[in-house]
C-alpha cells in the first residue's frame, strides 16, 4: 500500500515542491527582520513634526504603495544592472548585489515596509493621548515615553494588520523569479509549477499542489502571529481580542 501511495502523482508533487517552498519561505523570512524596523522608522518619520522628514516618508510610502511590486522588481533590478559597471564591479560585490537571493529580499523590504509603515502610522495615531501626557507629566524623557508608552501601544494595535501584511508578503515572493534571473535549480513554487506544467500539461495537479503549499504556509504564518499576539496582549484582562484565522482581505 505504501508503494502505491509513494507512486501517486500527488505525493510525488508534494515531495518535489518541498524544496521550492523553502525558497519562498526564505524570501519572506529574510525580508521581515529588515522590513519591520524600516517600517517603524518610516511610520515615525511620517508622524514626525519635522516637515521635510514627514514629506519624504509620506512620499516614499505613497510611491511604493501606489505602484505594482512587479514594476518595482524590474525597476530595481535594471537600476542595479545600470550601476554594475561603475559601482558593483569595481568594488567586487557584483556577485552578491545582483544575486536574486539578495536582490529579492531587498526589493521585498522596500515594498513591504511601505505597506507596514502605513499600518504602524495608523496605529500611532490611535495611541491614547492621555497616556502619553501622563508619561510626560511624570517627567519621562522623550525616548522613555516612546519606549514605555507609544511603542507597546503601537505594536499591539498594529499587530493583527501586520500579521496580515506578512501573509501578503509571503504571497508577493512569487514575483521574485518572474522578474529576476533563475540560477540553476534555485526555483520557487511557481517556477516549479510552470516547469512541471510544461512537461505534462496537468495544470490542476501542479498548480493545485503549489496552491496547497501557499495555503498551508499562510495558515502557519497566521498561527505564529497569533501566538505573538497572545504574548503582546498577555497583560490585558477581560475580553481578549483573539486573532482569528479569518484573514483580512485588504492590504
Amino acid at each position: 500500500m505504501f508503494e502505491s501511495l509513494h507512486q501517486s502523482a500527488f505525493i510525488q508533487d508534494v515531495i518535489i515542491f518541498a524544496k521550492p517552498a523553502l525558497f519562498n519561505l526564505y524570501f519572506a523570512l529574510a525580508s521581515i527582520p529588515a522590513g519591520f524596523p524600516f517600517a517603524v522608522l518610516l511610520a515615525l518619520g511620517k508622524a514626525s513634526p519635522n516637515k521635510w522628514l514627514a514629506l519624504l516618508s509620506r512620499g516614499y510610502i505613497y510611491a511604493f504603495r501606489g505602484s505594482p511590486l512587479f514594476i518595482q522588481f524590474f525597476m530595481c533590478y535594471s537600476i542595479m544592472l545600470a550601476m554594475n559597471q561603475s559601482l558593483w564591479k569595481p568594488w567586487g560585490i557584483d556577485h552578491i548585489v545582483l544575486h536574486p537571493l539578495f536582490l529579492g529580499p531587498f526589493v521585498l523590504v522596500l515594498n513591504t515596509s511601505a505597506y507596514a509603515a502605513e499600518l504602524f502610522y495608523g496605529a500611532l495615531k490611535t495611541v491614547p493621548k492621555g497616556e502619553v501626557e501622563a508619561a510626560q507629566a511624570y517627567g519621562m524623557s522623550r525616548w522613555n515615553v516612546f519606549r514605555s508608552v507609544t511603542w507597546p501601544h503601537m505594536l499591539r494595535l498594529a499587530w493583527p494588520a501586520y500579521s496580515n501584511e506578512m501573509v501578503f508578503l509571503f504571497h508577493a515572493t512569487t514575483l521574485v523569479y518572474f522578474t529576476l534571473p533563475v540560477i540553476n535549480e534555485q526555483k520557487d513554487l511557481m517556477n516549479k509549477a510552470t516547469d512541471l506544467f510544461e512537461r505534462d500539461y496537468n495544470v490542476f495537479l501542479h498548480f493545485g499542489v503549489a496552491a496547497l503549499y501557499f495555503l498551508l504556509i499562510s495558515i502557519l504564518i497566521f498561527w505564529v502571529a497569533g501566538l505573538i499576539q497572545k504574548h503582546l496582549n498577555s497583560h490585558i484582562t477581560g475580553d481578549k481580542v483573539r486573532l482569528s484565522f479569518k484573514p483580512r482581505y485588504l492590504r
Binding site: H171, M190, F214
Partner: peptide
C-alpha cells in the same frame, strides 16, 4: 471561495485560470 482565493497568491490564479480553460 473567499478563503481559498485569499490564501493563495493572485499570480497563481491569474496563470491558472487561463491555462486550465485553454487545456
Amino acid at each position: 471561495y473567499t478563503t481559498i482565493v485569499r490564501g493563495v497568491p493572485d499570480v497563481l490564479f491569474i496563470l491558472f485560470f487561463p491555462l486550465a480553460f485553454e487545456k
